[in-house]
């Protein structure tokens, strides 16, 4: 077995090691977020006496809020502290001895988690379309879903580099998980994970599109919902590519100047 397949299979075993927790959390989180979002937006639509707002009706709004949290989980991959915790307690040392770089190892474990959530997204969207929207199976719908899933996965690669740059700050600071939480807030808020981008004022949208977040969250969701053209998908990939280069270069420099500070204390 090649080294990368054994890392992936190890990671899958880890994800599935507490099955009851995993499924209760997955089903519970999805159901609760769906119910709350639907209740909120029904109330907003009712108070205005309209059936649609900013291009959303209740069905599409519900779908949006169904995709957003799973999409965010795809981007987040492994949980916070996937590097900083190990730097803090000294277990990071093992990566310096592995026959592959820590970047390769972390990329594999992170993206295995992301891929797992991509599969969850597929199941959720298909079930919702079939049972709640009663939508007939159409090749375009399937293609949109595939394209959206691919965008989320590419987004996870970009987010991993951004997360790595932040996590490596722990070579200087003792604890950086709060920075990762802040990053998560920004991602959801500026990316359209809390409220669809079309609800923000025009000036705010212009500013938000200067950041990578709408491309990581909003565009993939809208792609799955079939609201995005092929050209927009290509633009999204291109923009994410540029951000990825920026973050990777940052990781390179942060690691180069920070690695000498690593002491391996605790091991």
């Amino acid at each position: 077995m090649k080294w990368w397949t054994s890392i992936i299979s190890q990671e899958i075993k880890k994800i599935l090691s507490y099955r009851s927790d995993f499924w209760v959390t997955f089903v519970g989180q999805t159901a609760i977020q769906l119910v709350i979002a639907r209740a909120l937006w029904s109330s907003v639509f009712e108070s205005q006496g309209v059936v649609s707002m900013q291009g959303f009706n209740l069905e599409t709004m519900t779908l949006y809020y169904l995709i957003a949290p799973v999409g965010t989980r795809i981007l987040l991959g492994e949980s916070f502290g996937f590097i900083s915790r190990e730097i803090y307690d000294g277990t990071f040392t093992k990566y310096l001895l592995y026959p592959l770089s820590f970047v390769q190892y972390k990329t594999l474990t992170y993206l295995t988690n992301s891929l797992f959530y991509v599969l969850q997204l597929f199941i959720i969207v298909m079930l919702y379309r079939m049972f709640f929207m009663k939508a007939a199976f159409e090749p375009t719908m399937f293609l949109n879903l595939m394209a959206g899933m691919a965008l989320f996965f590419i987004g996870a690669v970009v987010y991993l580099s951004l997360g790595m740059a932040v996590e490596l700050i722990s070579l200087w600071a003792d604890n950086v998980w709060s920075l990762m939480v802040m990053l998560r807030f920004f991602t959801a808020f500026l990316g359209g994970g809390f409220i669809p981008m079309s609800f923000y004022p025009e000036w705010a949208r212009r500013i938000m599109y200067l950041t990578p977040f709408p491309y990581l969250v909003s565009t993939p969701i809208r792609t799955i919902m079939g609201d995005v053209s092929g050209a927009e998908v290509m633009k999204c990939i291109l923009v994410m590519g540029v951000w990825w280069v920026i973050f990777r270069v940052s990781v390179h420099f942060i690691w180069r100047s920070g690695q000498k500070r690593y002491t391996g204390v605790g091991q």
């Binding site: 600071a173 003792d174 604890n175 950086v176 709060s178 920075l179 939480v181 802040m182 807030f185």
Partner: peptide, 8 residues
């Protein structure tokens, strides 16, 4: 860390 948490 103290400052980061307040900011968070």
């Amino acid at each position: 860390d103290f400052t980061f948490r307040i900011l968070m």
